[in-house]
Design a protein around this nucleic acid. Structure first.
Lengths: 225, 225
DNA sequence: TTTTTTCTTTAAGGTTGATTAAAGGTTTTG
DNA sequence: CAAAACCTTTAATCAACCTTAAAGAAAAAA
């Protein structure tokens, strides 16, 4: 289950992300409205947590835009105390719920569960697809052509990143930032090692998906003919 | 037999829970209407004890909502003295009974038995199944392949959690939250210990069910070939 | 109540397996 | 060709996890 947090208070955003990851949700966080919109439009999220007060573009505008694009992802608005009128506007524009800051973890989790339940009675599972492979980001199993193989966490996170970014080229810096965190001192070689591991497993699966290197730029998934 | 208590007076809720557990009911308690709704909708309970005055969402509204969802779980309302009109409304909306605070333990237990009897003549039993094992959450006996072994409470709760979550991976945090409560300071090692105990007992039963570790993620039940 | 038993938690050391670092090879680019 | 970027494998390190024993707490029995 993938959740996108759009919240400009970095601290809160990271705290939320951490809490949700412990519940085994896949979480991405962005810190301004424009990035929120870009990410939300990808349609890969099962739920959006949207702060109302945001730089670049406020949460309500963001909500309006994604609804106009036909995206029905459940949205929970995060509101400060005084923003009652915003709440109402939010619900009018298709938010599923709102929760006033400060809120308890428990309450947030309950509302998330409720929103997810409300939406798709049959909860979509966590399988990501690309070409002939399917990655389950919860139990870390990668399958294709009848075969199946277990990944370890870092492999899964890396492949997940490549799969969600589809045909975009992903740089080593982006990978490091996503897998090891913003200011980590991890070497490029480290990424190369995991790319190598993944290629081996893709080969084992006899998948037609491969990880192509674009020198000086990054990696991208491709389907071979 | 699983009972959900929705009662905002923490003290009363816990006291009730304790009394009912002594009667071998499986009891969960939540302290506001929204959480009550979330939990009740899961449909796993055999009875709901519902306070009328609640934060977030009052008991009557809660009752209405679950009945609208087609959930027929018996409901006993807990009412304060003055709330006669609420009682009536409650019965209109499909409560099975009400009991006025303060009430005696005996009276409550009698009404619970009556409500359960009234509902399903054949009472659903408390056996959970997965693969070749069966867990009775009331007498804490785990059986499979003809053999049977007694679990202790924490083992049973842990296995119950894994069994109800079926093929989902459950993190240690989720386990701690469920077994020890939200903000407890219990160490991860504690979970590991009980996982270890359970594995030993599964081995003793020669069950094909095993608890698989997914490093950095959590635990999941699997059936071996 | 005191004693005994059972259950729960803590602590410690061992084991496994993930991660990192390193080294040598290969491919691409200028 | 030389330099840079990348690939792959292996070995060392480190973190996560497992297991056992025993202390502590709670419940049951005497």
């Amino acid at each position: 289950m993938r959740i996108l947090i759009v919240e400009d208070e970095l601290h809160l955003a990271e705290a939320l992300a951490q809490i949700l990851r412990k519940q085994n949700y896949s979480v991405d966080a962005v810190y301004d409205g424009q990035s929120g919109l870009d990410n939300a439009l990808s349609g890969i999220y099962d739920l959006l947590l949207l702060d109302i007060m945001l730089p670049e573009m406020d949460g309500i505008t963001l909500l309006k835009k994604i609804r106009n694009e036909g995206i029905t992802t459940p949205v929970i608005l995060l509101t400060a105390k005084g923003e009652i009128s915003d709440k109402v506007a939010g619900l009018d524009y298709g938010a599923d719920d709102y929760i006033a800051k400060p809120f308890s973890t428990e309450e947030l989790l309950a509302r998330i569960r409720a929103a997810l339940r409300r939406k798709g009675e049959i909860l979509p599972d966590d399988a990501l697809k690309f070409g002939d492979i399917e990655l389950n980001t919860v139990n870390l199993k990668l399958s294709g052509k009848g075969k199946e193989i277990k990944l370890i966490l870092k492999e899964s996170e890396l492949l997940e990143l490549l799969m969600t970014r589809k045909h975009a080229v992903t740089s080593k810096e982006q990978i490091i930032e996503k897998l090891w965190g913003f200011d980590s001192e991890v070497e490029h070689n480290n990424v190369e090692v995991y790319i190598s591991f993944l290629r081996k497993k893709l080969t084992f699966l006899q998948s037609s998906v491969r990880i192509t290197t674009i020198r000086g730029v990054g990696y991208v998934l491709e389907v071979t003919a």
